[in-house]
Design a protein around this nucleic acid. Structure first.
Lengths: 210, 210
DNA sequence: GTCTATAGGCCGATAGAC
DNA sequence: GTCTATCGGCCTATAGAC
């Protein structure tokens, strides 16, 4: 993140193996339980090689999480421009967001960043910037456009985007983040999206304030 | 949690010192970075005494987090029965919830439980039960009563409670959980509560469905 | 750059005296 | 129950040969 750290080639095969192994283990077991020995073993590389590519466990962790945050930003953030049915458009955006938030890799990253954000202060800020804030600013822009086109009534697009996003982190999302079974079912996901869209649209149809 | 574990007196002074020290250190540094040596030092007790009261680091951690979860449940869950102004009532409930979610101890517990919920499966379930689920079931009951009294229109109180709760975990809440400065200001807190109440009420005034 | 081998330290947990 | 002292192990990181 702060230190790109490519002393050898960025695309060195061993380096790629190390990154892949570290990502898998950090996400599965967290920072504390993952040892450099285990990463070296998983990557089929000696520990010395590992340390030739990454100066410390901290730096390796920061690199892995930074990469993962970058991957989040690459998620298709396109919002339809030729909208006619607001309910369908919001349902589509909401469903994509909720499914993304519940995906295994996203959940793993969230747990890691929340767990270590105090020890690695840049991590939380980086995640927030490339994840939630990027998504919300795109959504706010889109909402503003829909509002300007008269398809919805929104006073403050930024606030509205934040609220729509929050509605897609209901108890279902908490349950998943806390690893409490059962895993979210298809029906639950769709019901939560529908409820979020309904509440949001009902409010926007009814009022002109924020 | 599962193992009450009081071999000596539950209220033994040394035991209390251990619990206090462990709670402070676990919440500040997390499970991995907190050592039994540090806890013993902080509690002014030998490590052998520590192990006389708690069989292992895991068990001590589970006890501390279980206690903390129990303390959450003790939060004043009273909802006004003699309500006239729904906006004021919801604002009061919302403000108490958001301030609670942002409190330092609550944040520390959330980080710990999210971080270790995979290694300690009972932890996530216990937290969910005594925290969010207890609150939401009380809120749902209260909303049902208000709906029955004709002060609001709610089809599914459980869904509505979940949504009101979700609206009180906006970006502001994420920022705090990720330890990203600045700390939430008074104005931000009140603005977020007001926005949540406005959206919720506008939707409930406008529709009869969920 | 990559290996084998190991330094050096801290950790969780225990033995044994009182 | 509480202490002092210590074990055995695993961890991060490095030295030195190739």
């Amino acid at each position: 993140m702060s230190t790109p750290s490519h002393p050898p080639h960025e695309a060195s095969p061993k380096r790629q193996a190390i990154v892949a192994a570290a990502a898998r283990l950090f996400m599965a077991d967290g920072y504390g339980k993952t040892s450099m020995d285990a990463i070296a073993r998983e990557a089929a590389v000696s520990k010395a090689t590992l340390y030739a590519h990454f100066a410390s466990k901290d730096q390796l962790f920061a690199t892995i999480v930074g990469d993962a945050c970058g991957r989040i930003a690459l998620q298709d953030g396109t919002f339809d421009t030729g909208v006619t049915d607001m309910r369908a458009a919001l349902a589509s955006i909401g469903e994509r967001l909720l499914r993304f938030l519940l995906a295994a890799e996203t959940q793993a990253i969230q747990r890691m960043v929340i767990a270590e954000s105090q020890r690695f202060p840049e991590l939380g800020a980086a995640f927030l910037a490339v994840g939630p804030q990027t998504f919300l600013s795109h959504l706010a822009e889109w909402l503003a456009a829909q509002s300007a086109a008269g398809r919805i009534r929104i006073a403050d697009p930024a606030v509205a985007a934040d609220q729509f996003g929050a509605l897609l982190r209901p108890l279902l999302f908490l349950r998943a983040l806390l690893s409490v079974p059962p895993a979210p079912s298809e029906a639950e996901i769709l019901a939560n999206v529908d409820a979020a869209v309904s509440l949001f649209l009902a409010a926007c149809a009814a009022r002109s304030e924020a």
